[in-house]
Every structure is written in structure tokens, then in C-alpha cells.
């Protein structure tokens, strides 16, 4: 029980500071690359204050309950995804034998929640965003599941705790070089960023969040950042050895690796080019999916050798 309370406290701390830091980092990168957004350690709070004092706009006959549920659900799925990450040996909030599959379940729920967020305002642009996102969000999950299964092979377990333990000698990012890049692309899709942002993008005037205002908008942006934190923690656990590292305590190593992954995702989101939906579908099904098969095959051959 004590361990659960400790892990839960760490989770809340991790999530809160992670969200704030992700917002600052995002501002820094946007500033560097486009020279637009405001930079500063307090800038996220200013943005939140602006959103929260805004007038609430209403659409015609929205589904208020599902609108709220989609935002709250997106935030809580991010927290649940973070909860399977071990902060130290045997220090995970949710210790499941099947935590990799559990994270997969979170991924698929995220697609549902983003669709719901675009559907519930009953407005055209947000619905288009939701539809486009489902077309991209479902297939991009397949490569991510294959690379996660490949990461589970050396551990001979679907448990993230075992997967970390199996990286004692060599991190998965070296053992399976194709895994992390593919997983990072999934991160772009889950957090609605850059080239995989077919839900909330500028060409739809904000897409699924086009009709969000006030607290809803603040909540959705916070949830997106929380998802970035959760995803980065899972990626650094599955591929970068999680809490493993010399000298410093395990939790600090996990935080450092999470920050590196987070910065990489944000950097990629500003760097990579956008594509039309049809071409992106072709890229996912015809190129990324076969590459993930290769990754799985490679992991299997290494395990047999």
C-alpha cells in the first residue's frame, strides 16, 4: 500500500511538471522555427488564463456530455498510460502482466476519444477533423503495436517492468534500431502534432478543437500535453531503458529520458512535412507497416541467435 501511494504521488508530480515543461518546450521550438509564439517559463499559465477568462461559445445542439467526456477521457487515458510505466524496480502504479497490451488498449481508446471530441460539437470542421484522424490514427497503431511486441521479445514478457529489466545490458534502441523511430511517429499521431495532425490542424481552423472555447479549450490543450508526457515516458521505458542508469536514482533517469523523447517529438513535429491524407495512408500501409514487420523479424532472429 505504501508503495502504491508513493508511486501515485510520483505519477501526479511527473504529470504536472511534465505538462508545464512540455508547454514551455513547445513554445521554445515554435519560437525558434516560426518566430511566433511567446516564450517564457510562465507563458503556459498566461495562455491558460486567457482561455479560462474567454467567453464560452456554443454550437447548435452539441452533445455536451460527450464533449466533456472526450476531454476528460483523453486526459485520464494519458494518466493511465503513464501509470503502467515503472518508476523503479516494482514501482508502477498499475502493475499488470500485460502492460504492453494495456498501453495498446489506451492507444485505441485515444482514437475513439479524439473522434468523439470532433463529433460532439455538431459542427462541420471539427467533424471533418475527426473523420480524417480516424483514417490515419487506426493504421498508425499497427506499426506501433508490432514494434512494442518486438521490444517485448527479448524480455520474454508483456510486462513493462520485465522489459526494462531486460535492457540491463543493452537498450532496445540499439538492439532494435527500427523500433524507436516508428514509435515516435505514433507519438506524433497520438498527441496530434506535426505531419500526423489530421485532427486539430491549421488547415481546418483547429479541426476537432475549432469549436472549443474557454475551459474546454484549456482542458483539451492540457490533455494533449499530458498525452505527450505519457507517451514519452512509455517510449523511454520500452526503448531507452526506463529507470536504468548509473549514479543517479532511477526516477531521475526516467525523467531525463522522458524529457529527451519529449523534445525529440516536439522537434520532429515542427520539422517533418505534412502530406495529403491519401498519400499518408499509402505511406503508413505500404512503407511503415512493412518496416515494422522487419523490426519484428529482426527481434525474433536476434532472440533465436
Amino acid at each position: 500500500m505504501m508503495i502504491f501511494v508513493l508511486a501515485f504521488g510520483m505519477l501526479i508530480l511527473f504529470l504536472t511538471f511534465g505538462i508545464w515543461f512540455a508547454a514551455v518546450l513547445d513554445g521554445v521550438f515554435s519560437r525558434r522555427l516560426s518566430g511566433q509564439s511567446a516564450v517564457g517559463l510562465l507563458a503556459p499559465f498566461h495562455a491558460a488564463a486567457v482561455y479560462l477568462t474567454q467567453q464560452r461559445l456554443r454550437t447548435e445542439a452539441p452533445d455536451q456530455l460527450n464533449w466533456f467526456l472526450s476531454i476528460a477521457g483523453y486526459l485520464s487515458v494519458a494518466a493511465i498510460g503513464l501509470a503502467v510505466v515503472p518508476f523503479g524496480p516494482d514501482l508502477a502504479v498499475i502493475g499488470l502482466d500485460t502492460s504492453v497490451v494495456f498501453w495498446g488498449a489506451c492507444e485505441s481508446l485515444i482514437v475513439v476519444l479524439i473522434f468523439l471530441h470532433g463529433w460532439s460539437p455538431n459542427a462541420p470542421l471539427s467533424l471533418i477533423g475527426a473523420y480524417r484522424y480516424v483514417a490515419i490514427g487506426l493504421p498508425i497503431m499497427l506499426p506501433s503495436m508490432f514494434v512494442l511486441i518486438a521490444a517485448a521479445i527479448p524480455a520474454q514478457s508483456l510486462d513493462l517492468r520485465e522489459i526494462v529489466a531486460s535492457q540491463e545490458t543493452m537498450w532496445n534502441v540499439i538492439r532494435q534500431p527500427l523500433g524507436l523511430p516508428l514509435f515516435l511517429l505514433l507519438g506524433l499521431s497520438l498527441t496530434l502534432r506535426g505531419p500526423f495532425d489530421y485532427a486539430d490542424s491549421e488547415d481546418l481552423a483547429g479541426g476537432t478543437s475549432a469549436e472549443d472555447s474557454g475551459a474546454n479549450r484549456a482542458g483539451w490543450q492540457v490533455a494533449r500535453l499530458a498525452m505527450l508526457v505519457g507517451f514519452s515516458a512509455v517510449a523511454s521505458t520500452a526503448f531507452l531503458g526506463g529507470y536504468l542508469g548509473p549514479v543517479l536514482p532511477g526516477f531521475v533517469w526516467l525523467v531525463l529520458k522522458t524529457l529527451v523523447v519529449m523534445a525529440t517529438v516536439i522537434w520532429l513535429s515542427h520539422l517533418l512535412a505534412r502530406m495529403p491524407v491519401a498519400r499518408m495512408l499509402g505511406l503508413i500501409w505500404k512503407i511503415l507497416l512493412p518496416i515494422s514487420f522487419l523490426d519484428l523479424l529482426w527481434a525474433g532472429l536476434v532472440a533465436l541467435a
Binding site: 499488470l96 500485460t98 497490451v101 494495456f102 495498446g104 488498449a105 485505441s108 481508446l109 482514437v111 475513439v112 487506426l138 497503431m141
Partner: peptide
């Protein structure tokens, strides 16, 4: 149980 959630959401 977990696979049910995973499959059914999709």
C-alpha cells in the same frame, strides 16, 4: 480482458 478493450475500441 485487456485484449477485449483493445479490440472493441477499434
Amino acid at each position: 480482458g485487456v485484449a477485449t478493450v483493445f479490440m472493441m475500441a477499434v
